[in-house]
Write a protein that binds this DNA or RNA. Structure first.
Lengths: 203, 203
DNA sequence: ACAGTACCAGACAGATCTGTCTAGTGTTCT
DNA sequence: AGAACACTAGACAGATCTGTCTGGTACTGT
């Protein structure tokens, strides 16, 4: 007890802006992110999360109100990361063609991560009749991806950009599933190759 | 009670070969199939299954030993149906090219079914760290699909049939996911169109 | 100094889960 | 008639789940 109490000021001096440790809210989100993604939302109970976060149960319900809302926060964070990853990949290139293919390069990196366990939105939706939070955030993320690919397809001068975007989303999904189910990280490169064929054919 | 008892001989006269009602084992598998697929394995408890099957709990454990083994039977049945569906689609055509595309026609029919809730194997795997039964049957089914496509790709004279088979599996997976997540049954036709492009390009 | 805030520790309620066990019913085969 | 069999009904154990509530600690701003 006293050791913990003494430790806090040390951390405070070293790192954060105001508080030393991350806030209970942030630690909860970190723990939820790791556990939900690795083991599934249904499988992971509140108790495991608060234990890993080093947080009292009351704090969880103070910060998030319910498990469902914690799930929403978890998925929103996953979406933020996906968005950032794809935008960063796109930013590395200048032409729409290269930018479209860069999306699959980013996917390739993702699949190579040993912590990869599939798409968080697909996994969450597959666990059963999805609560509102799961459907809503899933829809947000999927339509964002579709929109990003559509926008690039238009810039690439595709004759039918809507069709191309649908095809590329299909490849994106297929690579994610294949990598998860078969443990085969090469699916992103397969998808990239098909994408290149489609882009070059349709433009 | 007596009404049920009287009803049995009637059913016996009408239908089944030896017994009137289907056996407890079969009724359990029917109930498990519907409930697990519609709502998820984790979500559906034993009690719901035995209630729908009209079967005593002891009978479930007599027939299957555990919930996990019932899950295995459920997935094996799903695999059998998938196999039958694809084989039937292939049997309708003569040329390998048409047969490959027929796989996606069969998929199209599947997605149009209002009961469609995604791929049972993907869903089961997404619920969390998968028990042996889930991993084993999932692997059986996925490698069977891959093998079927590979065999057709060889017959079609593809220069690199392994690559083509990988690409087609990717499209198959992508269509399944897209249809589930976006409620868009058109993904099978999108996948079919891409498949046609790939087949015609590579052969 | 003191109120307010953020947090921790853990008991508790009420529901639900898998799996076991007892006891009894009805049919079939010999 | 009687043994074997498949099955039903439901209590029960033991674990686990979400969410609430009490009581206490430590730091912050005034």
């Amino acid at each position: 007890m006293s050791i913990d109490t003494i430790g806090v000021p040390d951390l405070e001096a070293r790192s954060g802006p105001t508080t030393g440790r991350a806030s209970a809210r942030d630690r909860l989100l970190d723990a939820a992110d790791e556990l939900f993604y690795a083991e599934g939302i249904h499988t992971v109970g509140i108790d495991r999360i608060i234990e890993r976060a080093g947080v009292a149960k009351a704090s969880l319900y103070n910060c998030y109100g319910s498990k469902d809302e914690l799930v929403r926060a978890y998925l929103l964070r996953r979406h933020d990361r996906r968005q950032a990853r794809i935008q960063a990949a796109i930013a590395r290139y200048d032409t729409p063609r290269e930018q479209l293919l860069a999306v699959f390069d980013a996917l390739d990196e993702l699949l190579a991560d040993p912590k990869f366990r599939g798409c968080a939105f697909v996994n969450a939706a597959a666990e059963g009749p999805a609560p509102d939070a799961v459907r809503e955030v899933g829809e947000i993320s999927r339509s964002w991806v579709h929109g990003a690919l559509l926008s690039l397809a238009i810039q690439a001068g595709a004759s039918d950009p809507g069709v191309l975007a649908d095809q590329l989303v299909l490849l994106y999904d297929g690579a994610l599933i294949g990598a998860k189910m078969d443990g085969n990280a090469a699916t992103a490169r397969t998808a990239r190759a098909v994408a290149a064929t489609l882009i070059d054919a349709i433009v």
